[in-house]
């Protein structure tokens, strides 16, 4: 067991341990958003009418399109992992690339959506907001914070999956050593799950 390397425990890979660590990390992500969900429920109870009205200003079509995009990307990342485990490296790479493209598509939609809303003056601290009831400001404050934080997670996920793509190409993640891809996939699913909650809370609140 012992080697001259200064990182002896890396000689032996503990897949179970790696997965446990990843799940613990996912817990922390859920709790990070949990703080925002608490704020959302407190303010929705306080400003029900304004939240209802605020939801009408959001573009539900883009919201639902983005939901479909993320759900499809969760499917492709799952296929990518299974394909790799079955030895179909080419299909795995294709699906992984598709996931990254879908993630980028989500961000493009987000950009179109946000720039539209901002051009209408619907953003925190805008001159328009100063004239509207207080609950409106809170709704849009939370909207930009929560979807923005989620957007950052999408970017982080895309980076992680791109690194995995490189690993699979260079045979560092393989049929027998797929733990890293599995963990990156778990992270991507988490990004997806959080979005599933954001969609009804904001876009369907109307």
């Amino acid at each position: 067991m012992s080697t001259s390397s200064s990182t002896p425990s890396l000689v032996h890979k503990d897949y179970e341990g790696g997965k446990l660590g990843m799940w613990l990390f996912l817990f922390t992500e859920i709790l990070l958003f949990g703080g925002l969900f608490i704020l959302y429920s407190a303010y929705r109870a306080r400003y029900p009418l304004e939240f209802h009205e605020g939801g009408q200003h959001l573009n539900a079509v883009i919201g639902i399109a983005n939901t479909l995009i993320l759900l499809t990307s969760s499917l492709t990342v799952a296929i990518s992992l299974t394909a790799l485990q079955k030895g179909e490296r080419r299909r795995s790479l294709l699906c992984l690339a598709a996931t990254i493209v879908l993630g980028l598509g989500f961000l493009v939609n987000k950009y179109i959506e946000w720039s539209g809303e901002i051009s209408h003056g619907l953003y925190p601290n805008s001159p328009l907001m100063a004239q509207r009831p207080q609950g409106d400001q809170i709704f849009f404050g939370l909207y930009y914070t929560m979807t923005g934080l989620h957007g950052l997670h999408v970017i982080a996920g895309i980076i992680a999956l791109s690194v995995m793509l490189g690993f699979v190409l260079r045979h560092k993640v393989t049929r027998t050593d797929f733990n890293k891809l599995e963990n990156a996939g778990l992270y991507w699913h988490l990004v997806d799950v959080i979005w599933i909650f954001l969609l009804p809370l904001f876009y369907l609140a109307a």
């Binding site: 704020l39 925190p124 207080q134 400001q137 404050g141 939370l142 914070t145």
Partner: peptide, 9 residues
């Protein structure tokens, strides 16, 4: 963003 700011609700 206003979530802790009483002036903004």
């Amino acid at each position: 963003i206003g979530v802790f700011d009483p002036a903004k609700g």
